[in-house]
């Protein structure tokens, strides 16, 4: 049984370690850990920055779930991203990494660049999609459809609620091959070739069986890492909506939890209400992530 004083002794022994981690972890604790706790605390208050926060209990949460129709659109859209772009992108990352794994290093590097470049592009990526879906006849999609005779006049895709969600999904997918993609490429390179040779002797007949019985179980730690990244990404979709569709979007059709948070936090200065949204987002991301982790750990068991 460790006593408090022995722990203290232990800690004194490691004072160098604490000194070394301090420059990173002190600001980390303030701007990440304390910050999350502060958001949780503020979520029970009315706070407009000018006056001191006033405690209002669960009122923000009650308003969010019972009164705020736009928040329910935001939730619905975000879940759509979590259900579609998250898994689709996860599979896409793995698929591309797996197909290019046996190619020559130069070819592999070139293909990696092509698929990873949209992630690097950041804000500048949206301008090109604005051009693709432009409402004028010089926009790529319009020009193509007009030329083919499928349209009589150009459509304003980015302002039309019929197209907003599909466009968000496509563009989000396009720029979602990020950290998890790189992790999968690297992870596949570490899989021992001898395992495949041994498996071939044991009767594994084709690449699909090889994938299922050997590659996926060995890749499990990387799949876990990739899932963490993809889930955080798909719950956090916002930049695409803001930059492509404007802020707010037509009839709030492109609203997500994060854009709702920004609307209340940055534009309306209702910090208590925005903090309640942040708290809900935080809890959903962490709980969902932990659940998926548990599921993925079962692969190959």
């Amino acid at each position: 049984m460790k006593t408090l004083s022995s722990t203290w002794k232990e800690m004194k022994k490691y004072r160098h370690s604490y000194l070394m981690i301090a420059p990173y972890y002190l600001p980390f604790l303030v701007f990440t850990v304390f910050s999350v706790l502060m958001a949780m605390g503020l979520s029970f208050s009315y706070f407009n920055v000018l006056e001191t926060p006033r405690l209002i209990g669960w009122q923000n949460y009650i308003n969010l779930f019972l009164q705020d129709d736009i928040f329910s659109i935001a939730m619905k859209n975000t879940f759509l991203f979590v259900a579609i772009t998250g898994p689709a992108s996860f599979i896409l990352c793995f698929f591309v990494a797996w197909v290019i794994n046996e190619m020559r290093p130069k070819v592999r590097a070139a293909i990696t660049l092509v698929f990873y470049a949209p992630t690097l592009a950041g804000v500048s990526a949206f301008a090109i999609w604005k051009f693709v879906f432009s409402g004028s006849e010089y926009g790529l999609v319009n020009a193509f459809l007009l030329k083919a005779g499928l349209l009589m006049e150009p459509l304003t895709y980015l302002k039309d609620i019929r197209f907003i969600l599909p466009i968000l999904i496509v563009v989000q997918l396009w720029m979602s091959l990020g950290h998890s993609f790189l992790a999968f490429i690297a992870g596949l390179q570490t899989v021992d070739r001898k395992l495949y040779e041994a498996a071939a002797v044991d009767g594994v007949r084709n690449r699909w069986q090889e994938l299922w019985y050997i590659t996926l179980p060995v890749m499990r730690p990387f799949l876990l890492f990739g899932a963490v990244m993809q889930i955080a990404q798909s719950f956090g979709v916002s930049a695409v909506s803001i930059n492509l569709l404007g802020f707010p979007t037509t009839k709030y059709a492109g609203r997500t939890i994060v854009t709702h948070l920004m609307d209340y936090g940055i534009i309306r200065y209702e910090m208590g209400y925005a903090s309640a949204i942040a708290t809900i987002l935080f809890l959903m991301q962490v709980i969902f992530n932990k659940t998926v982790q548990r599921g993925l750990k079962r692969i190959g068991e």
Binding site: S35, V36, V228, F235, G236, L261, S275, L281, Q285, V286
Partner: peptide, 9 residues
């Protein structure tokens, strides 16, 4: 696991 926007405010 969570978006940076959580700590924005």
């Amino acid at each position: 696991m969570f978006s940076p926007e959580v700590t924005k405010i």
